[in-house]
Amino acid sequence: MTHLHIADGVLPTWLWIVGFALAFAFAAGASFHHRHDRPDRLTLLAALGAVMLLAMSVPIGPLVHLSFAPMVGILLGPGLGFLAALLVNATLALLGHGGLTVVGLNALVLGAAVAPARPVYRLLRKRMKPGRAGAFTAVAALACSVAALYVVIALANRGDLASLLADDDHAGAQATGRFVLFSSPFWVLATVAEALVTSSVLSFLARVRPELLP
């Protein structure tokens, strides 16, 4: 549930245009921030983006799959991690696996899971072993992502820009509430799976290649 599996033509036009603009702005900022990085950061970005794409092929249950976003966030950090999220979503859309117009919004929602991962992991790591710290990081990261998803849904339920500015939107709020209700079981399943897998990956890396971890 860390990105919108929503086709083109469903969300209000203004929403996906703003999504593109924001995603592009964050990507430009991250690229600028990392402009002097050694080229091996580029190849690592591509490599972990590929792992993220592969991890998304791992089905958890009906309509739910892994995202690997918290893990990539821990390994790459917020800036390069956001770029990985954008690349993954662009690749998926350009391969017919998701809407073309919602790439920006998807990058933002997936990026919301990637960005806090490293700082949260570092904080938790002071008190816990890598595996446990990773599990809680995954829960926190996915919570951020799902919150971003619900914000997008709530905005979409407002309709056009004029309605967005109106105070009274009872129907939109109700629709958002129903979406939260319908999607919660999927979110819970996804979070448990992501936490278990992230914990396992981090425990493995900590034993075998601890220098890869922050």
């Binding site: 972990l48 590929a50 893990m71 897998v197 396992s200 990956v201 290649r209 890869l212």
Partner: peptide
């Protein structure tokens, strides 16, 4: 097991 498999892939990719 899935986590360790993905961990192997992370190392290989790195």
């Amino acid at each position: 097991a899935a986590g360790e498999g993905l961990g192997q892939l992370v190392i290989h990719s790195y």
